[in-house]
Amino acid sequence: MRVPSKPAGFTLLEMLVVLVIIGLIASLVGPRLFSRVDSSKIQVAETQVRLLRGAVETFRLEVGRIPTAEEGLAVLYSAPADERARARWRGPYLDEAVPADPWGNPYRYSVPGRDGLPFAIYSLGADGQVGGEGNDADIGFLPPQ
């Protein structure tokens, strides 16, 4: 009579070796992937700022002025309170309400902008603070200093 043999399996040592190898690979690849995520957020913010600038320029062409600082970017999606501007408003100029920046903060809008621009649209970057470098740098058409 034959005794059935034990089913083949992995030993604890083999499992630990595999886990160490996976950990080493993750430690080498992980930082590269996360740096790509940060740079892609910067690119998304730059693209959104350009789209918002285009919407402000379209508003300016149709209404005859840029949005006031009090109206902000919300006027690109909702008609202005001013009756004269409301009569010329042909919006909405955005498909949906003004998006948040990739870090979850609202885009900033101010009048005037830097270097002779009539307005500023910008994100404060990853840190949400004025200034900064790298991922924390302000992105967009900035206000005067």
Score class of each variant (00 low, 15 high):
residue 127 D to R: 07
residue 119 F to E: 03
residue 10 F to C: 00
residue 142 L to H: 04
residue 111 V to K: 09
residue 90 R to D: 03
residue 83 E to C: 00
residue 105 N to D: 15
residue 2 R to F: 05
residue 130 V to H: 01
residue 117 L to M: 11
residue 90 R to S: 12
residue 113 G to E: 05
residue 108 R to C: 05
residue 38 D to S: 12
residue 48 Q to L: 07
residue 135 N to I: 11
residue 34 F to R: 10
residue 81 A to F: 06
residue 22 I to F: 05
residue 96 E to D: 15
residue 41 K to H: 13
residue 12 L to P: 00
residue 65 R to E: 11
residue 131 G to W: 06
residue 61 L to R: 14
residue 12 L to R: 13
residue 26 A to L: 11
residue 65 R to I: 07
residue 17 V to D: 01
residue 71 E to N: 08
residue 118 P to C: 06
residue 136 D to Y: 03
residue 133 E to P: 00
residue 91 G to I: 03
residue 17 V to H: 08
residue 86 R to F: 08
residue 80 P to A: 07
residue 137 A to R: 15
residue 89 W to Q: 07
residue 134 G to N: 07
residue 103 W to G: 10
residue 1 M to Y: 09
residue 51 L to D: 13
residue 46 E to L: 11
residue 3 V to I: 12
residue 26 A to S: 12
residue 56 V to S: 10
residue 73 L to G: 10
residue 50 R to H: 06
residue 86 R to W: 02
residue 76 L to T: 09
residue 71 E to G: 11
residue 15 M to Q: 08
residue 2 R to M: 08
residue 89 W to Y: 12
residue 1 M to I: 12
residue 78 S to F: 07
residue 91 G to S: 10
residue 88 R to T: 06
residue 135 N to R: 14
residue 41 K to M: 12
residue 101 D to M: 12
residue 62 E to G: 02
residue 27 S to L: 14
residue 144 P to S: 04
residue 93 Y to F: 05
residue 134 G to D: 04
residue 111 V to A: 06
residue 85 A to Q: 02
residue 114 R to V: 15
residue 130 V to D: 10
residue 109 Y to I: 09
residue 104 G to M: 08
